[in-house]
Amino acid sequence: MKNVLILNDFVSKGKIAARLMAPVLSYMDCEVFLLPTAMIANNFSLGGNAFFNIDPFIKESLKNWAKLNIKFDLIFIGYIEDKNQKEMIKDFIKNLDYKPTIVFDPIMGDDGELYQGLDESKIANYKDLLEVADIIIPNETEAKFLDLDIKNLTSQSKKIIITSQSTGGKPCVTYNDGRENVIPYEKIDLKVGGTGDLFDGLFIGYFLKNIEIKKAIEKTTHDIGKILLANEREYPGANEINIEKFLNLIEV
């Protein structure tokens, strides 16, 4: 069983972010350490919200796990609240005496815009975190905000996976490790929150089973399609995924 540390926001109302990733990774035989980077009342799309910064708990948790000699096979970085939190997480990773895989999804926007309630300070923080990442998974919007220099990043042996793209009018994911791979998938015309988080969880689960990255992406997009269709059949018009009910559709 692989140890996975999820550094991501915890949303009390809404099956997105860490609340969606954790059950997927647990089902895929990972020991999940869930460390919220922020406590958020609900999905940003609902409008009003409440936030609680949790930096002291992050700091003490990381310190405690180090004392217990707990080591992580993979660390996932998602939503980051501010510069101080970014620096704390970056310092933690750079001072480890072992080398886990660092997967980074710079969660900040979609459909060409930043998510409601976020500002451009997020972009600067996320750009800085590119330094410690091994695998970077933005959607097309986030990749544009970050102005990714793919050639430079891949020359440092970093892997770039960009989701929600299209080629020739057809949806695809691009994977670049120095050479671009285009991975097409069948788009399902549903507006459901958390699909990016589902991608992260599934991809990490397959990656940790030593499945080659391109194949892991293919399996991930295939599973997402099955889960979205099953969710729509069971809960017509739902705006989130009742993931626990459909874990058995994952091809582990």
Rank of each mutant, 00 (worst) to 15 (best):
N248E: 15
N152D: 14
P138Q: 09
P106G: 04
F10P: 00
Y235D: 06
G109F: 00
A18G: 14
N239P: 04
Y185S: 11
G112H: 03
F104P: 02
G178W: 09
P36G: 09
K226W: 05
V32D: 07
L20H: 07
E31G: 01
Y115V: 10
T195K: 05
I70F: 02
L208H: 05
E113R: 15
N239W: 10
G193P: 03
F104R: 03
N64R: 11
E212W: 06
D119W: 00
L129V: 06
D177T: 11
E81H: 10
N181H: 09
K158G: 11
D111M: 07
I162T: 04
Q165R: 14
G201K: 02
K127C: 07
A41W: 02
F72N: 11
R233C: 10
I16S: 10
K90Q: 15
F44P: 14
I135Y: 08
Y175P: 03
E113L: 08
D128M: 08
I183E: 01
K2I: 00
Q165E: 13
K170R: 13
L35W: 02
L20E: 07
Y206A: 12
K245F: 10
L7I: 07
I93E: 03
I58K: 01
K209V: 07
A133G: 06
L5E: 09
D97G: 02
V11Y: 05
A38G: 12
V173Y: 01
S157R: 15
H222W: 14
L190F: 14
N42H: 04
T37D: 06
N8M: 12
P236W: 10
E81G: 03
I75C: 08
K187E: 15
F92E: 05
E240N: 07
N125M: 11
N95I: 07
I77C: 07
P23K: 01
T154M: 14
E131V: 11
V173E: 00
P184M: 14
C30E: 04
L247C: 10
L46P: 10
T174A: 04
D82M: 04
K15W: 03
K191P: 05
V182L: 12
P23G: 02
N95P: 04
L247I: 12
Y126N: 12
V252F: 11
E113T: 11
G117C: 06
G205H: 09
L202I: 09
I213K: 10
I227S: 02
E81K: 10
